[in-house]
Nucleic acid binder design. Structure first.
Lengths: 338, 338
DNA sequence: ATGAAAGCGCTAACAC
DNA sequence: GTGTTAGCGCTTTCAT
């Protein structure tokens, strides 16, 4: 391993001088600068960032902790985060919690141990509270990604879950639906609560049916609650449309509907939050409230780095990004009206 | 920041003793062990891995360098890598080169500076050679992900691009196609060369038309070579099927075909390498040679860690994972025969 | 079974 | 402009 001393020796200067050349700090005569640089290039010296971090107490690393790397929303978000981090000279350490508190805890420990400079955090749910508190105790800044956790104040970059849900409901009602079911994520997740709020608000506003039996709460990933779905479908007044609280739920719902011989949208309409990116590019089928996932990541990293570098106001910032209704084929007027 | 000395002081032992307790090394009386552990828990002490890395010359970090995080193949691969790394106590540092040598170089520099213990590397192309050489000079082990680079020997986990391509061609010919176009990635990428080899071999074996004019070479991502596609389609003997060398190309091709009023598969069949995961789950449309992406990541990390920990034989290992033909709707018999 | 000393590779603070 | 000293938080080596 070649160190700063090797350079210093060969260039006949002190380690400090080399350090200054590398970091463009302090005053150096251009003669020595060039001589040192030459040796650096010649030996292909690359500074050890561990040593650097140790003294600087900064790692130039950010952690991105998400809940489902399989979900295009997070993939695209990661892409945005990656781009922004790269642009500003930070690297991304990557974690996938699977909405599992245990895995999340492991990652938080790793984060603490690595001394990353900040975290982009999509918490598994409200019980992530203790993990967040750990970060706060160590003064590690973090930005909430879409989901927040009651009891913790921090910077937030989020979509407008409530408004997005209302828009979706309005659209369905406008098509003629009055019995709209909700297949939601866990109530432990803030966005699930907000989407449910929006769902109710939308129903109320439009005068559509409000019926607690039409709400199914499950997890945001790996939808497989067949009994739950059957319960929804077997209500005396069967719903004519389903609002899935995210894209993965929508896929699960549609698959199970098809398995039951129900066609979408002929027999039942389906809409959801979050787009499917690739799948939609390929076959524009699902009607969705699309969120600007890339911007979540990109702007989230900007916020985080601004905070780290002391460029943010001291109060926590909140940025809300609107979603966009993308009307496609999976929702039409209900059959009775056709 | 709370250090090992804080623990030592409070538990009335030396720093060494604390270190031993943390790392379960050396001999410690269970009395002191417990006392020390208690203080650690009480203060919530978490070791600084930078300091640790500095002395140990190990970071317990792996770098995953891929070319397109938007592509479900890599997403799923990342998922597998992540799982394996987590299981074996390593963390993943994440890089996305966009098939861009400049970005790739930046990441390699970062890798070198971070002193990661090893790299999972999907090279942008043959000109990644110098980057790989840098890694070799510093004795940083790496595993090739699917793509290899001539002139470099290292562990490899790859799909069988040649055989997969042959299988796809056989299938098309069996359906009755004789004029099959290839939309390929750049010739600078090993898998593109192998898929083209397989394409030719398949055509030769089946006696189908071999015509250099039916081959279009472009990039693996963001397909937008409209003129190239038009050239293919305007051949005197228009192809009845297109083999896209990966999923992203297939999506691009299909979009452009539709834009030209050509229906898939009615007017022209399309098959490709790599599945679309979500899109396919949702709407099983594309006929593909699917690769076990998750296994690429999972086994790749295993190989890498085995190598790092000296558990691999000294010669470079190669693991070839077969692909699987998934017959769906995007390819049917050509129109003439219907 | 426990501890003292030295050093991993770097930079901040201060001389000169 | 340049060099010296000290120390970031940890572990290795070798005493005791």
């Amino acid at each position: 391993m070649i160190t700063i001393y090797d350079i210093a020796k060969k260039a006949n200067v002190s380690a400090m001088t080399v350090s200054k050349v590398i970091n463009h700090t302090g005053r150096i005569s251009s003669a020595t600068r060039e001589r040192v640089q030459q040796v650096i290039d010649e030996l292909g010296y690359i500074p050890n960032s561990n040593a650097r971090s140790l003294v600087l107490q900064r790692t130039q690393m950010l952690s991105l902790l998400i809940t489902d790397i399989t979900n295009p929303f997070y993939t695209t978000l990661a892409r945005g985060a990656e781009d922004a981090a790269h642009l500003r000279g930070y690297r991304l350490l990557f974690g996938n919690s699977d909405e599992d508190y245990k895995k999340e805890k492991d990652y938080v420990d790793a984060i603490l141990s690595t001394r990353v400079d900040g975290v982009l955090f999509a918490p598994a749910g409200d019980r992530s509270l203790q993990h967040l508190k750990q970060l706060q105790e160590r003064h590690i800044p973090f930005v909430f990604l879409d989901r927040t956790v009651p009891g913790i104040t921090s910077d937030i970059i989020a979509g407008d879950s409530r408004e997005g849900a209302i828009a979706l409901i309005r659209y369905l009602v406008q098509l003629g639906h009055r019995r709209i079911a909700l297949v939601n994520g866990s109530s432990e997740v803030s966005t699930a609560r907000l989407r449910e709020e929006g769902y109710i608000a939308g129903l109320r506003e439009t005068g559509a049916d409000i019926n607690p039996e039409l709400v199914l709460r499950t997890g945001y990933r790996d939808f497989s609650d067949e009994e739950g779905l059957d319960r929804l479908l077997s209500q005396p007044d069967q719903p004519t449309a389903i609002f899935a609280a995210n894209n993965m739920l929508a896929i699960g719902v549609i698959r199970l509907l098809r398995k039951r011989g129900l066609r979408v949208p002929e027999d039942i309409s389906v809409v959801c939050f979050d787009d499917l990116d690739l799948a939609s590019a390929f076959d524009p089928f699902l009607t969705v409230a699309a969120q600007p996932a890339y911007e979540f990541g990109f702007q989230g990293v900007q916020m985080l780095i601004d905070r780290i570098e002391g460029k943010s106001p001291s109060e926590a910032q909140t940025v809300i990004l609107p979603s966009e209704l993308r009307i496609r084929a999976s929702a039409t007027a209900p059959r009775e009206q056709k």
